[in-house]
Design a protein around this nucleic acid. Sequence first.
DNA 1: TTGACAACTTACTAACTAGTAAGTAAAATC
DNA 2: GATTTTACTTACTAGTTAGTAAGTTGTCAA
Lengths: 192, 192
Amino acid sequence: MTAEPTTRLKIMELAQDLLRDKGYNGFSYKHIAEELDVKNAAIHYHFPSKEDLGVAVIARERRRFKKWIARQSIRELDVWGRLDWFMSIYEHYSNGGTRVCYLGVLESSFDAIPPELQNEARALNTEMLDWLTELLEEGRQQGEFQFESDAASKAVLVISVAQGSLQIARVTSSDSFFSAVQQVKRDLGFQS
Amino acid sequence: MTAEPTTRLKIMELAQDLLRDKGYNGFSYKHIAEELDVKNAAIHYHFPSKEDLGVAVIARERRRFKKWIARQSIRELDVWGRLDWFMSIYEHYSNGGTRVCYLGVLESSFDAIPPELQNEARALNTEMLDWLTELLEEGRQQGEFQFESDAASKAVLVISVAQGSLQIARVTSSDSFFSAVQQVKRDLGFQS
DNA sequence: TTGACAACTTACTAACTAGTAAGTAAAATC
DNA sequence: GATTTTACTTACTAGTTAGTAAGTTGTCAA
């Protein structure tokens, strides 16, 4: 889309990493300015307030998720393939066990982030839960997934496991994420 | 133990709440000072650095956990009872769906908290995982719990679910925690 | 060629951050 | 009764925070 990354994009990329690693209150415009060798006013030019920056990062992630789930190559996968794809989003976040997903970070310090960012976090959470709920329901109707609870509760469980195990992996530096995903799949009836 | 809470204890109580709700970088000595109507130097008197305060809060929680699991009334419970007790710790954190557990908070912004606090978080995490691993192994040997993976992986899964579902409950304001716990119990073989 | 606009920098601010040094009043210890 | 200790307050500091106002420079269209 763009040949060379503009300052605006560089800011968003770095902010995304910082948000993930340090939380919304764990980084400042100064960090970004020094890292990218620009002045903090340059960041304020693109994102007038820190809230704007945070919202922009999560809103982009929401757009990406929407685009992904609309893609033919994802839609034509069977239910197991789509589940694997969904988990691979978290796996992608997981950078050698040192990263967690945005939602866990934002949820953990929910009372300390600005209102618009709360809304974005809530929206992304809902969209992911809704998609996964539908997938689980479809898989159950196809006889591929086995579970007793309602699909929405199961979706919360699956995302909880992904989110939680990534966080635990961070402090134990183990591969707890992969093991957790395997258990979830087996729980749903996967024959290995 | 103490008739009236001293300033030191009040600081720790409030810091604990703030840590849980806003994260380590989401509160300041000023917040505590204003809330308790003391000067920020009073907090520095009891806890020279913010790192000391954070460590004190988590270290106390570690001592409490150790004391709990050593208690006769806990030890004499059957494996299901002990599992329920363990989950009730998280339930206690969950204050109408607005609170999460300390570990999730600290893990989420792990790169933005001071080293000694990282160590305390790691230690508490390990101690809880170890206790739960032993419980799961004992339950399996008694024929009460059914699971295929190794007990340590299952322990990570159970704690992930508790931690993750509390975080999700915070943004969806649902009772996802209770539903998640029920599913975990059913998964282990609980007959309702 | 001019004028508008985009993408910045320079230079600043007020409020907040953790943290300190020196003083004080009351209680405990000798 | 004198002195030490505890638990603070007063008054301060250096650095950081998000944020702004006023310039500067390069590009691009009329």
